[in-house]
Amino acid sequence: MDSMASRPTPLIRSSSVIRANRIIMSEMPLDHSTPSASYRYPPKPDLELAFQAVRKARIPQIPDVVFALRDELGRPEPDIRVAAELISRDVSLTGQVMKAVNSPLFRCRTKITNMHQAVAMMGIARLTNLVTAQAIQRMLGVTEGPAQVVWDGMMVRARAILTVAEVVGGVALDEAYLFGIMQNAGSLIFVEMAPDYGTEWVLRNETDPLGLMEYERKRLGVDHVTVGFLLAGNWRLPEHIALAIYHHHDSDFGFSADSAVGVLVALSKLAHSLVVMRHGNHEQLELPADQERALRDLAIDDEDWAALCDRAQAGEWATQL
């Protein structure tokens, strides 16, 4: 896996600078396929600060195949053959995707042996999410220093979200996992910008996430959810995922069972509870009201929640995609 140190390529290219500026000017993400009038977007000054922070970061570029797939997905009649050929050009990414598609999570009755079968089974939209998640994991994954602590924590949270999503009907696992990886991507950028950030993240991420965001705003001028929102727009993730990244720490966010944003935020709330529980910090759980609301809106009953808690305490998260 490539590390941030081994490939010091600027995160945003010239074309992406234009894209990010458009986000800042409009205060809206690029994909408007999801109704979003009821959701709050980052204020323009915050997006400008996030943009400056991202420009200073030096991490690998997201593969062009992700943008090519988003382009194909945006066509009036997306072609599954074109999508399969695009993915197949990246041998390493193809291997990761095939492994994920054949994992127990997707419960394939027969083994998928090529990318054309994978696209036919999952559809272009779902496979694009899966490819994006795998690309981000390969791109951002780090194996040393304080950043590794943050990255490992991000992956635990992603697997916790996937674990909850498994018991919720109608939630696409590929989308849940993509959101799970991305929701704290801003923190990974901050750890490279501030020498003391890793320590603050360890102390506050689980038990005081709102306090961590306050520290971020004082120390760096912007918080990780705003940076994550900007990255999601820049990488052309679906609009509701970008909004869920921005709102996933909100204590007053109104969940809605029929809202794609609300479902992802609810998954995040419950995953947070499970991670805290796993580390034995039950009494420090900050937002029990959010947990109860999320359980209700995701229609998770007491028996299923008890089973999830048992899995969390045993460290039995869902298989990593």
Rank of each mutant, 00 (worst) to 15 (best):
M1V: 12
S3M: 07
A5T: 11
S6Q: 12
R7L: 13
P10Y: 06
S15C: 06
V17L: 12
A20E: 07
N21H: 11
R22E: 13
I24D: 03
S26I: 01
S26T: 15
M28V: 10
M28A: 13
M28D: 12
L30A: 12
D31C: 08
H32G: 08
T34R: 05
Y41R: 14
Y41G: 01
P43I: 06
D46Y: 02
D46A: 15
E48H: 09
A53E: 09
I62W: 00
P63H: 05
P76Q: 01
E77K: 09
E77H: 10
P78I: 04
R81E: 15
V82L: 09
A83W: 06
L86S: 01
R89H: 08
R89T: 10
T94F: 01
V97P: 07
M98I: 13
A100W: 05
N102A: 05
S103N: 06
P104H: 05
F106K: 06
R109T: 12
M115T: 13
Q117M: 11
Q117T: 10
A118D: 08
A118L: 02
I124N: 07
L127R: 03
L127S: 03
V131R: 03
Q134A: 15
A135F: 01
A135P: 09
G141V: 07
V142C: 12
A147L: 01
Q148R: 14
W151A: 09
G153K: 07
V156M: 06
V156I: 15
V156H: 06
A158S: 14
A158P: 06
R159C: 13
A160S: 13
A165E: 05
E166F: 05
E175Y: 05
Y177P: 06
Y177T: 07
Q183N: 10
N184K: 10
N184G: 04
A185P: 01
F190L: 08
M193G: 03
D196C: 01
D196K: 10
L203I: 08
R204Y: 02
L210H: 08
L210G: 10
L212P: 08
L212H: 07
E214G: 04
K218N: 14
V225I: 11
V225T: 15
F229C: 02
L231Q: 06
L231V: 08
L231E: 00
N234M: 15
W235D: 07
A242I: 03
L243S: 07
H247K: 01
H248V: 03
S251A: 14
F253H: 05
S259C: 06
V265H: 02
V265A: 02
L267V: 09
K269E: 09
H272Q: 13
L274Y: 07
M277Q: 11
G280T: 11
H282S: 13
L285K: 04
L287I: 09
P288A: 01
P288Y: 04
Q291L: 14
E292D: 14
R293F: 00
W305H: 14
A307T: 12
A312P: 07
A312N: 07
Q313N: 09
A314K: 14
E316W: 02
W317G: 05
L321W: 09
